[in-house]
Design a protein around this nucleic acid. Sequence first.
DNA 1: TTAGACACGTGAACC
DNA 2: TGGTTCACGTGTCTA
Lengths: 228, 228
Amino acid sequence: MPRRPRAARAGGGGGTAEEVKMEDFVESMLNFGGGGGDESDDGEQQPPPGEATEYKSKNLDAERRRRSRLNNNILALRAVVPNITKMSKESTLSDAIDHIKKLQNEVLELQTQLADSPGEAREKQASASCSESFVPPADNVHYQGQVELIPLGACKYNLKIFWTKRAGLFTKVLETLYSYNVQVLSLNTITFYGCAESFFSIEVKGEQDVVMVELRNLLSGIVEVPSI
Amino acid sequence: MPRRPRAARAGGGGGTAEEVKMEDFVESMLNFGGGGGDESDDGEQQPPPGEATEYKSKNLDAERRRRSRLNNNILALRAVVPNITKMSKESTLSDAIDHIKKLQNEVLELQTQLADSPGEAREKQASASCSESFVPPADNVHYQGQVELIPLGACKYNLKIFWTKRAGLFTKVLETLYSYNVQVLSLNTITFYGCAESFFSIEVKGEQDVVMVELRNLLSGIVEVPSI
DNA sequence: TTAGACACGTGAACC
DNA sequence: TGGTTCACGTGTCTA
C-alpha cells in the first residue's frame, strides 16, 4: 500500500497523529462559540506543477470542517453530561441519552410533586407550564413543538400535544395512536379558548424508538395548523 | 487514481446508495435493542480467486458495525429530544445539548419552587412520590365506577365517567365509544391517586336515546370495579 | 454548477 | 498479539 505523504493529499489513510490532533484542537477553539467559524487560511495548497500526484479532492476542507464540528458537538455533549462511563463517542451518546431520560423523569416527578402541593405553589407551577408551552413558535416555521414524546422507559411514554380545537381532530389523533398499537393509560387535557393541551400517558409493546419518532412526526402533521 | 471495481470491496468511495441504506436499516433493526445483535449472514463475500484485487482490509466489518452503532445512537438521541430543528447529525447533537441544558434548568427551577413550598406540603409530596409505585389500591375509600350521560340536544351529550385506573380500561372505553359511532369532541380528565374523572363532550349522528342508554349501561359495566 | 451531508474503506494508535 | 476506536480522504447524493 503506497503511503502518501500528508502534503500530497490523496488516498485513504489517516495523517500524522500529532498534527491532526493539533489541527482539531485549533478548530475546536475557533468553532466552539457557535457557528461563526471562518476558514481564512489553509496554508499548504500549492502542489508543484508537473507532479504526477492527482492530489485533488473537491470537498476535502469542507469535510474536514464538518468532522471538526461533529467532534466538537460530541465534546460539548460530553461536557454537559455528568456521568461519562467511557471516553468514546458511542458511550458518550449512550450516556447522553440515559441522562436525558433521567432528567425528563425527574422533571415529571417534580412537576407531579409540585402539582400535589396546595395553595400558591399550584399557581406558580401553572404559570411555568404555560410559559413553556409558548416558547417554541416564534423562531421555527416547522411547528415541531406541538407534539412532544418523552420516553419514560420500559415501553412507556408521555405524549404531550398542544393543538387548536378542530372538528374530528381528536378522533384522528386517537385513531392514529391505535394504528400504532398504543395503549392509552391515562389522559389529561386542558382546554382554553379553542386551544387544548393534552397529556397522554401511553404504553406500546415491542416498538422501537424509531417507530415512535415516526408516530410523533405523524401526529405533528395531524395537529399542524392547516391554513399556514 | 486506481478505482477498484465495486464488487471487490476496497478503496475509498461509497457504494450504491440503495444497498447501503438497506444494509444500515437492517443493522439498525438488529442492533437497536442493545448489543444482542448477531452478524450471521454477510452475503457476498467471495471474490473470485485469481483476481488481482487486493480487496481485503483488517477491520472492515468491525468498522462497519461501529458506524452502525454510532448512527444508531444518533438516531436514538434524536428520538428522545423533542425539538429537532434539522435532520442532520450536527443539528441533532446541538439540539440534544440545548435540550439537556433546558432540562437541567427546569429541574433546578422546579426544585427551587418545591423548596419554597410550605412545610406540610413537603410531607405530602413525599407520600405522593411513593404512591407512584403502587397504582390503584387505596382501599380506604372504595369507589364504584360511575357513568353519567347528559343530553345537550342535537345529537350532543356530555359523558361523565368516574373510575379507578386500570390497565387498558381507558382504551376499552374509547373502543366502545367508537363502536357506537361516537365522535369525541373534547375530553377533560382529572387523575388523582389512581382515580380519574373524565368529561367527554361527544356527538353521535342519527342515534336514538334508547341506544345511548344502552351505551351508558355498557360503559357502566366496563368501568365497574371487577373484584366486587 | 456548487456546497453540504453522509457512508465508505483504510491505516494508525491504543489496549 | 487481535480487538476496538479514531481520523482521514474520497465518491455519491441532494438541494
